[in-house]
Structures are given as structure tokens and as C-alpha cells.
Design a protein around this nucleic acid. Structure first.
Lengths: 108, 108
DNA sequence: TGCGTGTTTGGCCAAATAGGTAAATACAAG
DNA sequence: CTTGTATTTACCTATTTGGCCAAACACGCA
């Protein structure tokens, strides 16, 4: 891998890494169903400490997946990318393959 | 998050985690351009130790993204999922947003 | 059987990640 | 200015990850 290629895959990996955590996937899911959600509400959805949720959100923001806007003493997060549905569709098809494997093994 | 929801996001995260590494993204890219590739050739492409590449491939296989078949003393890997192009398209659009941000900052 | 090659695995270490508590910051209201 | 609420950050600890080397395996071939 040369320099350019390396950075290409590194930047892609950075985005995927930001998504590769159950709590952050849930956050993206919740945000895809609402326009803007404050950290306190997201904290309720996740069920972890608010500091933990805040850090997860910061990771998503660093990756360019969400953006935040302050309003009074609250911070509202929203999705920046709308294509995540197709992405999750792909993930699901990977999972479907796995299920098929299971069934295949059981029927042998 | 209840039990069912939790496992749902955990399984999804597992797939994303398997993809979230530059070397593994490169592997997927190479495999998407060929039918079957042996570990030795993939090792040349990545430029790491063969043991390292082997472990990366094992992770992709555990996630259901690739499959392997032994032929003689060589092991050939191939992609199981064909929709990864659309997935990478989505990643690229996230990256494009980031570039737009950069330009916006520079023009201010 | 023994040798050479391709692949995987075990052991180890350095670095990154996740999550909690507590402290710091920001803002609104009195 | 002080108090209370929302959010982020600092610090600490436990766990996971990535990578290399060496050893183990698996197979083809003499």
C-alpha cells in the first residue's frame, strides 16, 4: 500500500470505527427518527452515564456523522448523513448470511 | 435499551467492527476485484506479516463478510457479500461532508 | 519418512478503547 | 452573585486490539 492508498483506507476506517459500537448505532438510529435530540434524552435511550453518551456523540461528530447545536443550556444533536439506511441494509444482509449458515448447519 | 434491542445493535456493531480497519478495508477491496485470492497474495497487497493478515481475514470471516476454501496447501478467500459497494458509497458521502466542512472553514 | 512452503495459532508487549466518578464549564433563573 | 441543571472533560482502571516473532499445523513432493 502506498501513501495515498493508505490514507484512503484510514479515513474510511475512521468513519466505520465511529459507527462500530452498539451504543453509537443506537444513537444514530434514534437520531434518524427525530430531527434534533438533546443529550439528556439520548442518555435516557442509551441507559449509560451521561458522560459516556457525551463521549460517544463526540466520536460520531468527529467522524462527520452527526452535528451539534447549542440552544440555551442544552445541546441538540442531529444526523448529517441520510444514507445510513442503505448502509444498515447492507449490514443486515451480512447478518442474514450468518443466519442462513446456522440453518444450513442445523439441517445437516 | 432492552435485551432484544441490545443484541440487535451488538450484532450490527460486530459486522462494522470487522470492517473498521484500514487493512481489512483494503482486503475487502482487493477481494471485490477478484474471485478468489490466496493469503500469500493478500499478504503482498497489505504489506504486513502474514500472521497479521491471516488474523484480519479470520475477523472478516467471523463477521460473515468473507469465506475461505482450502485448495492444496493454500487457502483462498472470497467475498460473501456483494452490497459493499453501496456501503462504501455511503462512507464516501460522509467523507465528502468533511471535505465540504474544510472548504467552508477555509473560505470564511 | 523427511523437507519445504503456505497458513494458523500462542505468547508477549504497546497502544487504543470504554466506562465510571468527580471536577470543570456553560448557561438560566432567582 | 448564588444556585441548579445540562454538558463536557480529567483522571483512573479494566479490557480489547494490533502487530511481530516463533512455534505448530497442513499439505505436496521427493
Amino acid at each position: 500500500m502506498n501513501r495515498a492508498e493508505k490514507t484512503k483506507y484510514e479515513t474510511r476506517a475512521k468513519v466505520l470505527k465511529a459507527l462500530a459500537h452498539p451504543a453509537r448505532l443506537k444513537l444514530v438510529d434514534v437520531l434518524s427518527e427525530h430531527d434534533e435530540v438533546c443529550v439528556c434524552d439520548l442518555t435516557d435511550e442509551i441507559g449509560s452515564d451521561m458522560s459516556t453518551v457525551s463521549r460517544h456523540l463526540a466520536q460520531l461528530r468527529n467522524a462527520g456523522i452527526v452535528e451539534s447545536e447549542k440552544n440555551g443550556q442544552m445541546v441538540f444533536y442531529s444526523l448529517r448523513v441520510k444514507c445510513l439506511t442503505s448502509l444498515f441494509g447492507c449490514i443486515e444482509s451480512v447478518l442474514k448470511c450468518q443466519v442462513d449458515d446456522q440453518l444450513k448447519v442445523l439441517s445437516e
